[in-house]
Design a protein around this nucleic acid. Structure first.
Lengths: 251, 251
DNA sequence: ATTGAGCACTGGTCTGACCAGTTTTTGGAG
DNA sequence: CTCCAAAAACTGGTCAGACCAGTGCTCAAT
């Protein structure tokens, strides 16, 4: 009945449809009031409702941003039982990657189908950034590339799950992974896979995109297993700073 | 910093310290704005924050009342902000099913490959129980069947994620779903799909199992969409008791 | 006593203004 | 031309006052 509830509902859907990029800025209050055809006061009330629910964060002079929902719990409360149970077990990494193989494939498939022009621009930008940085610290751009693809799938559930998987990988992953990326022929292969994935999505070839993504993850899996068999150390990184070494696993 | 946060904080304390019992009426907006020395708009924003947090309920013409804080399960685990964000949005159900289509398929695939004898026994037992119960309350055995399959995949991550998805579906799902299962031809089709899935897994035909599972979920999706287009009500169940009506969606 | 109109509440919404931070633009100094 | 500071153009935060829309009470006319 209340229009303000309707507004906050529509805002939620706007956030969901928009890909639910955590940390992403949402339109300004005045803009929203114009778009939705209501007064600014109403928009503000709706935003406060979302704020109370922890969906968004608002900063004076800057704007409102989608709250990162996963990392939002500094307390070990929700993720702890699972995390603690899993982390440290070498096997878990492969379990995670096994699921990721499937979901990254689906994300690529959907992205190829549903990507808007804005999405294509974001993906392209992320893709171009892949080659710019030096090999050792390219965890960030790589993450951005895959993130852009997942968000282009326009399935918030998928975004959420893959984010969760990634986070768990950071806790589970082994230091040995660091050895994988620096190898020149590895980098070549991965770059090629990325390019294939990129082209498939941009040209809307959904099946090809899915195949490219799954085979990419599968390649990472087999490479890791191979590496492990060669007697690579199976130790976890001790501090968070070293976590970027997991770039190969998040590709 | 923000005064409105301070206001909502003071209101919360007023509710707690004031010994305001659940269901009790809190002062009117105009009264609060006078008492707190701020504008009514500010009070309204603060109230909306509390409303979003589920602390109060507001009724047009009557006033705002302290909500009973009991009904929520005390365990913080499933009451993540994500849940609140998703639940109630019709689209989310399809987002969930879209992901499930993929993961149930993978679970079936892996189960066909990895199921131990013990797993086969469990799956068989669950399968046989499918036909025994009356059609209206067969949410339990159905859930058990799929659960047994997922666990036979021997991928804890997969088990965990699918459990989470199922839990979220229970919060998201619409009452209209209840109409799907009782229909005779639906039940026939679903039963046939279950049998195909069961046989494929037991005989170790992984690809066939995967196909059976995904097409099963896809069937549910299209059926639901069809039903929704026919003008079925898109209302959420009001009490937890009706949630078992979601069996069709969790199959 | 019953009923109805009217009034005094309640929240819901709008308008337009102004304050206070942040970011971008711009124009002049070097 | 470059660079940095002033200014303009954003952002959210707050206010005042008005009017609409439900709810419930009161009191007079029947």
């Amino acid at each position: 009945m209340a229009q303000s509830e309707d507004i906050s509902f529509r805002l939620e859907r706007l956030i969901l449809d928009g890909g639910l990029a955590p940390g992403q800025k949402i339109p300004s209050e005045r803009q929203l009031s114009f778009r939705l055809g209501v007064s600014r006061a109403l928009v503000r009330e709706a935003l406060h409702e979302l704020q109370g629910r922890g969906v968004i964060k608002t900063y004076h002079g800057k704007g409102s941003f989608v709250a990162s929902i996963l990392p939002g719990n500094p307390e070990a409360e929700d993720s702890s039982p699972l995390m603690h149970l899993y982390s440290g077990h070498s096997r878990t990494l492969y379990d995670l990657l096994e699921v990721r193989e499937q979901l990254e494939g689906q994300a690529a498939y959907l992205a190829a189908q549903r990507a808007t022009n804005m999405d294509r621009i974001r993906i392209t930008r992320a893709f171009e950034r892949l080659g710019e940085t030096d090999p050792l610290s390219n965890a960030e751009p790589d993450h951005g590339f895959h993130q852009a693809i997942v968000e282009a799938s326009h399935n918030p559930v998928l975004v959420h799950i893959l984010n969760g998987l990634k986070k768990m990988m950071l806790l589970t992953v082994q230091a040995s992974v660091a050895n994988l990326n620096p190898r020149e022929e590895m980098r070549q292969t991965i770059m090629k896979q990325h390019r294939r994935l990129y082209r498939a999505i941009l040209s809307g070839r959904a099946a090809a995109a899915q195949k490219a993504a799954t085979s990419h993850v599968r390649f990472v899996i087999t490479s890791l297993k191979q590496l492990e068999e060669q007697g690579a150390p199976v130790t976890r990184p001790t501090d968070a700073k070293n976590l970027h070494c997991t770039n190969i696993a998040t590709q």
